[in-house]
Design a protein around this nucleic acid. Structure first.
Lengths: 259, 259
DNA sequence: CGCCATCTTGAGGTCTATCAATTTCAGTGG
DNA sequence: CCACTGAAATTGATAGACCTCAAGATGGCG
């Protein structure tokens, strides 16, 4: 959680469960929702662009530009951010490997928020026409894109509850638990390549108050941050504190199996 | 904005631009995005259920129940709500006639939030299998469902910014402007069948503070609430205050025309 | 006419933001 | 190997926003 995280974590993150190296970004992600046949795999692979590398802090999509493509994140972290006229910043979404980025902007004439690399990352672009192509050619894949959007939406509503109705300590606890669940539910270590300032902008808190609140959690023995990572010392208590329920993160495989 | 609104407004609301009476709920809504041929219209009409009537405060979907269907709202107002263990409430979404409700819950084994009628309303149910059916039979309609979800998501991200980064007066201004834009962009009157308590739960504010903040806006001559509706006296100033930009409400017809 | 929900208004307290100074730490160059 | 540098984190003090509790006003409805 201290300064030393920033660069090193970027490398570590690449080795979490979410990061499965293979030919296509999206295929890997969708494979988890339902089995794909060769034809479906080929269709996806044909539509996606080259794997591109971005440096930390680099913009993948600029606000105000036409949102003519979205991305599949292969490795590294990214986020969607929105700037207010007074200079304030709100993080709308945090993306981990395997996620689709910028889907919600697709269809807008101009992007409302920007897509920024948090760490060095690899992603491949999808032109938005590709989406129509998928809808025409494969109902099953179309449903998977739909579900992908629905899952992101579930995460957004959860964030609204978090920001709207929970005090800072619960807000942070919930955030840490969500990140742990998304990174690796088995390991009580959250390796965050994020500045406290960025965390604050995601949770609607000031950077200073994030620092203070983390201290409080540390003093209560709920977390530890010695090694530059956040260690969930008492996960039970954290879950209890913010009534964390990870069902909204479900990949919903069952839904597709029924269809 | 006072007590007298609640019941009467429910009737008034039904006559806004969004409420177009016809054979099918969804057809009317989608017709605005792109032209539908007879076959597409027939498919939608075949899949949707009977038009049902609900009373104010009635539950359309209970939290914890399997989310086996979603709804198309024909007339009246509804909202998606989530209760926290400590009794707090967060309104996640407010629905006006023409909108699809509960799409984001579809695919979850159990609904996380509930769907409540704000006023008396009419809606028709769609079984979730109908969605798969649409995806199989009509790529165009499938895209429209996708867009519908994307639009709702754009509204959610806007709400996150509102709650996370704006003080109460700007938050309320933004809320009123959004509602005006959604109800009738031409008329500077917002006819809200909502309790101040409900508004507070939507904006992450206490009911008391909503009352106070409305008073402030009134004192500054920005709004008026004499007639039981909110009248935007100085829309320009309100827009300026919270930097309101309604692009996120776009129906995105152009996107579908391209496809 | 009286009841009930809603809205209003006041007082006091808590939470969080802001400003500013200090510390920590990784990276850099001597 | 050590001092220097700049970004990030910590800490203290203060102010302001918002919440809670509680009492009273308002208006619809039976």
């Amino acid at each position: 959680m201290n300064g030393e995280v920033t660069e090193e974590a970027a490398g570590d993150i690449g080795t979490t469960v979410e990061d499965v190296v293979s030919g296509s970004c999206i295929v890997d992600q969708f494979q988890r929702l339902a089995d794909l046949d060769d034809q479906e795999r080929a269709l996806l692979a044909a539509l996606e662009g080259e794997l591109e590398t971005f440096e930390a802090d680099q913009l993948l999509l600029e606000a105000g530009q036409p949102a003519s493509e979205f991305y599949a994140l292969h490795s590294g972290w990214a986020c969607a951010v929105r700037f207010l006229p007074d200079g304030q910043r709100q993080v709308l979404d945090i993306f981990l490997p395997g996620q689709l980025m910028g889907l919600h902007e697709i269809g807008l004439a101009h992007a409302q928020s920007e897509l920024v690399a948090i760490t060095e990352l690899e992603a491949c672009a999808f032109p938005r026409q590709a989406l129509s192509e998928v809808f025409r050619r494969s109902p099953k894949l179309a449903e998977m894109f739909f579900l992908s959007l629905a899952r992101e939406q579930a995460m957004l509503t959860e964030r609204i509850i978090n920001i709207g109705r929970r005090p800072a300590n619960e807000r942070l606890a919930h955030f840490l638990l969500e990140m742990q669940a998304r990174l690796d539910p088995e390991t009580p270590i959250v390796d965050l390549p994020m500045t406290q300032c960025l965390i604050g902008d995601a949770l609607g808190l000031s950077a200073v108050h994030v620092s203070r609140t983390l201290s409080n959690l540390r003093d209560e023995g709920l977390i530890d941050t010695d090694t530059g990572q956040v260690l969930l010392m008492n996960r039970e208590a954290l879950v209890e504190m913010c009534s964390f329920d990870p069902v909204y993160l479900d990949a919903r495989r069952r839904w597709l199996d029924q269809a």
